[in-house]
């Protein structure tokens, strides 16, 4: 019963439940932050409860990460096909250029074009998370052994069948590792969305910086860190699901 796989997922479920319970307990935060920072008159951000802020944050990251995957993975696939191979170096350097851009600068550029709020934030996060996904998709697909591909074609798979049934599954772990990095980066970067009114866990942090209130900053930063750890663990578990010899055999009692 207690296979390593079962234990992995059970532990994650436990952590997630603990996290939700913790961010739901506003009273606990008020008391502990008041104890830690007695100099502050107000210790929790009045705009919304933590649970709402976390939810906003998750939505922000989910939407931008979904976009990243939707664009990044097909882009990575395309530049490893015969038709798009010449563009591989270009795409690789453009995406890494995207990452050297400070997110605040992306926001500053996006606001005049897209206005305030959710949209420019999502665009910035999307661009920011693109590199690890594209890079790992390319690396994963390039690393599929030649013999494996040769066997796939030699057995009569079409290019599309070989991609779907062999290349992507074999590259899956690398691709998911890229997604993992991308999502964790985005959970941190999403903080800056609050600057232009996108909400999320950045709100108490920005308020804390403006009003010089450390309690606010901790209220935003602590749950964000926990969220990043949770997301990292979730994707680590998913990554393990694609191991080439899943450890489904129960360990001896």
């Amino acid at each position: 019963m207690s296979s390593p796989r079962f234990r992995r997922w059970a532990l994650l479920a436990l952590l997630a439940a603990g996290f939700i319970a913790l961010v739901s307990a506003m009273k606990l935060w008020e008391v502990s932050l008041a104890f830690l920072f007695p100099q502050e008159l107000q210790v929790v951000h009045p705009r919304a409860t933590l649970l709402v802020l976390v939810w906003e944050h998750i939505q922000l990251v989910a939407v931008s990460s979904a976009l990243t995957l939707l664009i990044g993975i097909p882009l990575g696939i395309w530049v490893t096909r015969p038709g798009g191979k010449e563009l591989q170096p270009v795409v690789a350097s453009v995406t890494s250029f995207g990452q050297t851009f400070p997110p605040v600068a992306v926001l500053a550029l996006a606001v005049p074009l897209l206005g305030f709020g959710l949209l420019p934030t999502v665009v910035a996060l999307f661009l920011y998370g693109l590199l690890p996904v594209v890079r790992n998709t390319i690396a994963g697909l390039n690393a599929v052994p030649n013999d494996v591909l040769e066997a796939a074609y030699g057995m009569g798979m079409s290019r599309f069948q070989a991609l779907l049934r062999v290349e992507i599954p074999v590259a899956a772990r690398a691709i998911i590792a890229g997604i993992r990095v991308s999502v964790v980066i985005n959970i941190g970067t999403a903080m800056i969305g609050a600057v232009i009114g996108a909400g999320g866990l950045g709100s108490p942090i920005i308020a804390g910086l403006v009003q010089d209130n450390i309690a606010y900053i901790v209220e935003g930063a602590a749950p964000a860190a926990m969220l990043a750890i949770l997301a990292d663990q979730l994707l680590a578990n998913v990554e393990k699901e694609f191991a080439h010899a899943p450890d489904i055999i129960a360990s001896p009692a």
Binding site: P145, D147, A152, V170
Partner: peptide, 8 residues
């Protein structure tokens, strides 16, 4: 030669 079994 190197068989090329599908590892997954």
């Amino acid at each position: 030669q190197n068989v090329g079994l599908f590892p997954h």
